[in-house]
Design a protein around this nucleic acid. Structure first.
Lengths: 154, 154
DNA sequence: ATAATATATGTTATGTTATAACATTGCAAT
DNA sequence: ATTGCAATGTTATAACATAACATATATTAT
């Protein structure tokens, strides 16, 4: 499977899913939070907080401030709609929120497109490693950087 | 295995190993680089760049500047003597440099002690995941945060 | 030995990422 | 209406990292 960007319908579905989850869980999906989520998922690639900030400032035709963005991101991460890629200080949308707590990523250095790779065998292996070390996991960062099929062929 | 800090002899051995590797590979282990490595490994816990900076400033009795520290860290990371924990913007010494390219970590949120956990089965699993996705890995970040045995019993 | 080159360090400034602290708004419950 | 609470606005600053250029130190070729 090569890494390709999401289709318009996938994006719509993703946004709709978040709306539904928020509705049924009584989570306040405010205008800003929704806007930030849309900006993140529509971006295809990992996006940085200040890039989001710029986009919002443009949309609103007036400057926004960092806390506005970071608060929205916090909300989205807390509820599993967005993940942070620590290795590149960037944010990505989650395309199966609530399906799992942890999310692992392949990140192409060349085209910057990312892909979730949350197979159970990997999850199990990490879990076994933790158990073997008497360690109780609260959260896991797994970010695999490299080149996707398309980019390694070029 | 509980997570405990390294003994003095382990630290000495670790520093000695780095000296030997540099000697045999003609890597310039300058005073600053050696000092930064010592500060990092002796710290036991992940340490932040500006903490290192403060320590150096104290040792030299005059202020040092960020590039001094970051350059030394770059050298140490390039040669596998130190790793960066992206999830907490901190640095840790590597206790088996050159033994492997990638290094995985367990990080206790409570006591802040970390532990390398580079079993081959985990490495294999990650490698298989990449292959399955036609992805060529250049580097991997795996940071498992949670609680170690001691801290989860408290 | 000396000049030329490369490598490392010093220094100043600034860029980038993220949060603290407090004021204000809007809305729901009593 | 008033209180309480969640969200947002706003200002300022903290925390993390690098660019750019000057200087020094080591290495190599002549």
């Amino acid at each position: 499977m090569s890494m390709k960007s999401k289709s318009t319908s996938e994006l719509k579905a993703s946004i709709h899913r978040v709306e539904e989850i928020c509705k049924s869980n009584k989570l306040g999906l405010t205008e800003i939070r929704k806007l930030v989520f849309e900006i993140i998922v529509k971006n295809n690639k990992p996006i940085k907080a200040y890039e989001i900030l710029d986009k919002i400032s443009n949309i609103n035709n007036k400057p926004s401030h960092p806390p506005t963005v970071y608060r929205a991101i916090d909300f989205l991460i807390e509820n599993g709609f967005v993940h942070k890629l620590n290795s590149i200080n960037s944010f990505v949308g989650c395309f199966h929120p609530k399906a799992h707590k942890e999310c692992y990523f392949l990140i192409c250095k060349k085209c910057n497109i990312y892909q979730e790779c949350c197979d159970d065998s990997l999850k199990d292996r990490i879990s076994k490693t933790a158990i073997h070390n008497n360690f109780v996991i609260s959260n896991t960062t797994l970010e695999i950087e490299g080149h996707c099929l398309d980019c390694s062929q070029k």
